[in-house]
Design a protein around this nucleic acid. Structure first.
Lengths: 232, 232
DNA sequence: CTCGGTTCTTGTCGACAGGACCCTAACCAT
DNA sequence: ATGGTTAGGGTCCTGTCGACAAGAACCGAG
């Protein structure tokens, strides 16, 4: 009985996953997601939190959600081990320190795992795929997007999270209307951000309301940039 | 490592769950959901299918979906066991035969478990609750409703599934429009049903198209019977 | 055989939400 | 001041969803 944790974060506008390089056999030297054995005295959630902290130095607090179990025979060459997949979303990964079992720990773009150009130890590629699929779905119905950004953020930053994970372009004006008036979804702080190096009007700063909870109606927009008024 | 299976079916217009009465300690004589230990040579899905068949004689075929893992210390008084929860939806449970470990097997209304008037062995009450919550969610996005009805069915029967699980009233006309033209969601057979004892026009018979797969846009209707045109 | 009663099916209408697009507001650099 | 850039607000259109009315197809009773 192990738990494995998929840690997702935004970096340079793209979705990244936190991986460790295995320091022991099997799959020594390969990339894998952090995880380890559950102790009999702890719950699954506690085990996930502890393993994450031990192997990467990251504290995911209350953002760990379970998303699947994996128990195919042969998934671990040593013995038949069932693992529970956990998903964690972080705004700022902070200091990443490789733990005792890991030779290294770093962020890699999620796309590299999704398209198969980087394959992981065990069945971890599958687990990462499932985790990202879960985030995509949860983004539509929960406020998990606020977990990717800082404690205060602009709507442009929040919109970038949706765009990166869904791979679509969202209209800034419509996005605002979808997210702002909807309950206490995001809360304006009254303060304003400093404009970026390219100038522009400063944006209102928001903080997360009832984050990662139910509610929140952001829907995908099919595409931007077409408008066919049939002008023959 | 065990698997536990929540089998849901419709009976007398209400949602029912298949339970067994435990024949052994612990919790001897209490109601529980079927399940058992996974063997090292089989996958989790195979284990769920096998245990279901062994303990109840039910063949759930391909309708088993995993929905959660439970591993709190103390959930089993004998030892620390993690269990994987599976959900199965059946149209007709067919012959229910109590297996070797079970003293009896029968269907009980899901409401009895939900409202706490019947509590189950281990943490099975929680597991059943989670399974039903999963079905409610999956009903909105997958065609799992067709798994509750027979191989051919009328739209009224299918609508009754939604109404029973969500506890709402759906407009028959709008329900039709939501489900019929949507791809090959349900397929008309051309045949018609015999009207019930209370008469009425015979309904078209349908069969499931791409059941329990993605797609399918049924949304909840808040309530029936109000229409406030503000007639002062 | 006609007449209600019941149920299925089609039609219509209004409310609302979502997407596309335009315009103004506020900042910076030159 | 002027242009470039981004934030925020407004408008129009269209598709969807809920409510409801009306027609179609069966039954049983008188």
């Amino acid at each position: 009985m192990t738990v494995d944790i998929v840690i997702l974060t935004m970096s340079e506008g793209r979705l990244h996953v936190l991986l460790i390089r295995r320091g022991e056999a099997p799959y020594q030297g390969m990339w894998a997601i952090p995880g380890g054995f559950k102790r009999p005295t702890e719950t699954l959630d506690e085990a996930a939190k502890r393993e994450l902290s031990e192997e990467t130095g990251v504290d995911a607090a209350s953002l760990l959600t379970q998303f699947g179990a994996y128990g195919d025979p042969g998934r671990d060459p040593r013995m038949n081990v069932v693992t529970i997949g956990y998903l964690a979303v972080l705004r700022d990964v902070g200091a990443i320190v490789a733990g005792t079992d890991a030779a290294a720990a770093s962020l890699v773009p999620a796309a590299d795992v999704l398209n198969g150009s980087l394959d992981l130890a065990f069945d971890h590629s599958w687990i990462v795929r499932d985790a990202i699929e879960r985030v995509r779905a949860e983004l539509e119905v929960t406020g998990i997007a606020t977990a990717f950004v800082g404690s205060t953020f602009t709507l442009a930053e929040l919109r970038a999270v949706y765009e990166a994970i869904w791979g679509v372009q969202l209209d800034a004006a419509n996005f605002r209307r979808s997210v702002v008036p909807e309950g206490d979804w995001v809360i304006p702080t009254g303060r304003r951000s400093r404009p970026g190096p390219s100038g522009g009007r400063p944006a209102e700063l928001y903080r997360a309301g009832r984050a990662w909870q139910a509610g929140g109606p952001i829907h995908r927009q099919p595409r931007a940039g077409q408008k066919e008024p049939a002008t023959s």
